[in-house]
Design a protein around this nucleic acid. Structure first.
Lengths: 243, 243
DNA sequence: TCAAGCAAGTTGTCTAGACAAGTAAGGAAG
DNA sequence: CTTCCTTACTTGTCTAGACAACTTGCTTGA
C-alpha cells in the first residue's frame, strides 16, 4: 500500500478527531518531518483529502479544514432504506417550487403524453431527521387536475389526489439510474458536487382508466439513502424464470 | 499560466481531433520529449484529463482515451435498460477473478450468514456490444457447492446452479444504491473515476428451502445503464437490454 | 504616524533520477 | 504445441532540490 494512502488515512482520522472547520493543518514541511517522508508525498496525501472535500488549499496561507460532519461515510450506519414501491408517497415533503408549462419533445416521450400537453410541475424536498435527502419533481397533466395549484399545500401528494380527485395511482414503470448533482441540486440537498445521486423516474397511471396522471423524478443523496426491492408477498409459486 | 495547464489543453484538443475512444495516448516519456518538459509535468497535465473523465490510466499499458461524446450527454442514446429481476442472470459474462475466503463480520451481516462461513467469490464482467458495462461479484457459501470452482467456466451462473446442483433461486431482497468507482472498478469498466456507478446488492435464496445460496453485488456504469422496475404481469418478461 | 517594503513562512510548479508494479510479447524449455 | 520465463515498455510512487507565487507580520524610512 502506498505511503501517501496511509498518510491520507492518518490525516483523515486526525482531522475528524482533533480539528474543527476553520483551523489549518500543519504545514506540508512540518507534516513531512513528522511522518519522515518527502514533502511531495505529503502533498499527494493532501490531494486525496482535497479530492474528498475535507480540506481546502490556500496558497501562501495553509491548508484549511472544512466541515467534515457529513463526509463520505458510505456504508456506515445512518443509511436509510426505502421500498421502491413507496417512492413519492411521502407526507413530510416541503414544496420548494411550482411551475406551469407545456412539455417539450424530450419530456413528452418520458411522460407518455403528447408534446405540448399542459402540465403542473411541483418540486418538493424531503428531509429525514432534518437532513435534506430527496428532491422530487412531480409532473401532472393539467386536464386531470383543475385548480391543483390551489389545492396542494404540502404533505402527501398522492393522498390529495385520491381524496380530492378520487384517483388511485399505480406505478407502471420505474427507471433507476445514477448521476451527479447539478449546482442547484447540490445546494438544495446540501451535498457535494462530486458525490452521486440516486434517481428514479416513475410513470404512475390511474388504476382504473390506465391514463397517465403523474410522472415524477426523484433524486436522493447516495451517502445516506438506498432503495429496497422486495418481492410481492403472495408471489406465483411457479418460480422465477430467470437463469 | 502553468505549463501543465497549457499541455493539458493541447492534449485535450488533440484528443478531440485525432483520437478515438479505445486508442492510447503516446507514453508519458514520449510526450515529455515532444513538449520538452519533464515527465512529471506531463503526468500533472494528464491528471487534468483524468479528472475531466477524458482518459483512463492503465498501469503497464498506457493511457486510454475514453468516449468524449458522452461527456455531458448522460441520458442520450445508447442507454440500456434492464429489469431488476433479471440482474445477475446473464450468460455473456466473463470471469475475471475467483477467490475463496471466510466472510468477515461486515459481509456476513449483508449476506445473512454466520461470520466465518467459507464462501467462493466469483467476479464477472459483463459487456454489451463489446463495451464493459457491469461488474458483478457473486458470493456462494461453499457447503452448498462442492467443487464449484471446477464446474463454473463462465456463462450463466444461475443456469449452472440449477442444472448441476438442482437449485432454483429466488431474489429475496435487492438494495439499490449509487457510489463512485474504485480505481480497479474504473479500470475494469473503462470508466472515469468521477462518474457514478449504479449498485445492486441481492440476496438470493433457494426457492425450496429458503437458505441463502447466493449474495451478489453488481456495479454498473451509470452513463449507459439503468434498471427498470415493472409490476409483475407474466413471468416471461425478462428485460431485453438490446439497444 | 503612516506607508512602503522586506523577511519569513506557506502552497504551487518544475526538474531530475530511481525503483516498484503491471502488461504484453517473444523465446526457451518441456 | 504448450507452458514458463525473460525482457522491454508502460504507469505508479518516492525522494531531492530549486524557485515561483502568495500571505502575513514586522521593520524601516519618510
Amino acid at each position: 500500500m502506498a505511503i501517501y494512502e496511509d498518510v491520507a488515512r492518518a490525516l483523515e482520522t486526525e482531522i475528524r478527531e482533533k480539528f474543527r472547520s476553520g483551523e489549518y493543518l500543519p504545514s506540508e514541511i512540518q507534516l513531512a518531518q513528522r511522518f519522515s517522508i518527502n514533502r511531495h508525498t505529503v502533498r499527494r496525501a493532501i490531494d486525496e483529502l482535497v479530492q474528498a472535500g475535507m480540506v481546502l488549499r490556500q496558497q501562501g496561507k495553509g491548508t484549511l479544514v472544512l466541515e467534515h460532519s457529513l463526509q463520505y461515510q458510505i456504508g456506515a450506519r445512518g443509511r436509510f432504506s426505502e421500498s421502491v414501491e413507496a417512492m413519492g408517497h411521502h407526507s413530510e415533503a416541503r414544496i420548494i417550487g411550482r411551475y406551469f408549462h407545456r412539455v417539450d419533445e424530450q419530456l413528452a416521450q418520458k411522460m407518455w403524453v403528447e408534446p405540448g400537453t399542459e402540465v403542473f410541475q411541483i418540486d418538493t424536498l424531503r428531509r429525514i431527521d432534518g437532513k435534506p435527502v430527496t428532491l422530487i419533481s412531480h409532473y401532472l397533466p393539467k386536464h386531470h387536475f383543475p385548480d391543483l395549484e390551489l389545492q396542494y399545500q404540502g404533505g402527501s401528494l398522492h393522498a390529495l389526489l385520491e381524496s380530492r380527485y378520487g384517483l388511485q395511482l399505480t406505478r407502471k414503470q420505474g427507471l433507476i439510474s445514477a448521476g451527479m448533482p447539478t449546482r442547484q441540486e447540490s445546494l438544495l440537498l446540501q451535498y457535494p458536487r462530486n458525490m452521486p445521486l440516486l434517481k428514479i423516474r416513475s410513470n404512475n397511471l390511474c388504476t382504473r382508466t390506465g391514463a397517465l396522471v403523474e410522472y415524477s423524478v426523484s433524486r436522493s443523496r447516495a451517502d445516506c439513502f438506498e432503495y429496497k426491492i422486495e418481492p410481492r408477498q403472495n408471489p406465483r409459486t411457479e418460480g422465477d424464470p430467470s437463469s
